[in-house]
């Protein structure tokens, strides 16, 4: 029993933390760029970046399978190096990253757009480089929104099921995350295992929501002048 609970817990946590770290940095970078980008392709790029949020997870999973599968462009490239990601732990990370990215991106972009341009310009006229302006002024002011985005991305990643099943499958001890394990446990009549995993997910989600509430309360205090 212990092993059947701890293994999916470990796979889920390692997957979700890795995915959240990736979405955190890529989300910040893309959101910062998009927050100030005013080109003609703005709506199109925005739509592409948000797409995994609105598409059914199975569609995202199939798309990823077509990209990373044996005959997909990335899959072919990986085969040249003698490796593949389908039905492996990296596949769980890829799906978790893709489905959680839009939440990180949307929250971070919104937070960056809220930062007053004149505050950033003030930093520039005071001699701060673009890098220092970002780290000392923009990011601290946008931080509550950025952190809330990371928490929401984390929560979305922990619940990811459909796309993970399509790309990573269900291999206990390798790709069986908590949601996938719950599904198969119920199917196999292992209700105790399923319920224990449900309680664990509820605890993780509750902690995430508490963190989200904390960051939301923080934003008012920091941004108000």
């Amino acid at each position: 029993m212990m092993e059947s609970v701890l293994s999916p817990l470990w796979i889920s946590l390692s997957t979700v933390f890795t995915a959240t770290i990736i979405t955190f940095f890529t989300g910040i970078a893309v959101a910062r760029w998009m927050a100030r980008y005013e080109g003609k392709l703005r709506n199109f790029i925005d739509g592409i970046l948000i797409l995994p949020l609105v598409l059914p997870p199975t569609v995202v999973g199939l798309g990823l399978l077509m990209l990373f599968g044996k005959y997909g462009p990335i899959g072919q490239l990986l085969l040249l190096f003698g490796t593949t990601v389908v039905f492996s732990w990296p596949a769980t990370v890829i799906t978790a990253t893709v489905v959680s990215f839009p939440l990180m991106y949307m929250n971070a972009r919104g937070a960056f757009e809220q930062v007053d341009v004149s505050v950033e310009n003030a930093a520039r006229t005071l001699g701060a480089s673009e890098w220092r302006t970002f780290w000392s002024v923009t990011l601290p002011l946008a931080w509550p929104g950025v952190a809330a985005g990371a928490v929401m991305a984390f929560a979305r990643a922990i619940g990811e099921f459909g796309a993970t099943l399509m790309l990573a499958g269900y291999i206990p001890g390798r790709t069986a995350t908590i949601p996938v394990t719950i599904y198969f446990a119920v199917q196999d009549g292992e209700m105790n295992q399923a319920l224990v995993l449900v309680v664990i997910v509820l605890i993780i989600v509750f902690i995430s929501l508490s963190a989200l509430a904390y960051f939301k309360s923080k934003s008012y205090k920091v941004i108000t002048v």
């Binding site: 007053d116 004149s118 505050v119 310009n121 003030a122 930093a123 006229t125 002024v137 920091v222 002048v225």
Partner: peptide, 16 residues
């Protein structure tokens, strides 16, 4: 950064 001008903005733009 290199213009050596001091700027006081209309909304002051203090770092909150």
């Amino acid at each position: 950064q290199q213009r050596s001008v001091g700027y006081v903005f209309q909304d002051l733009a203090l770092f909150p």
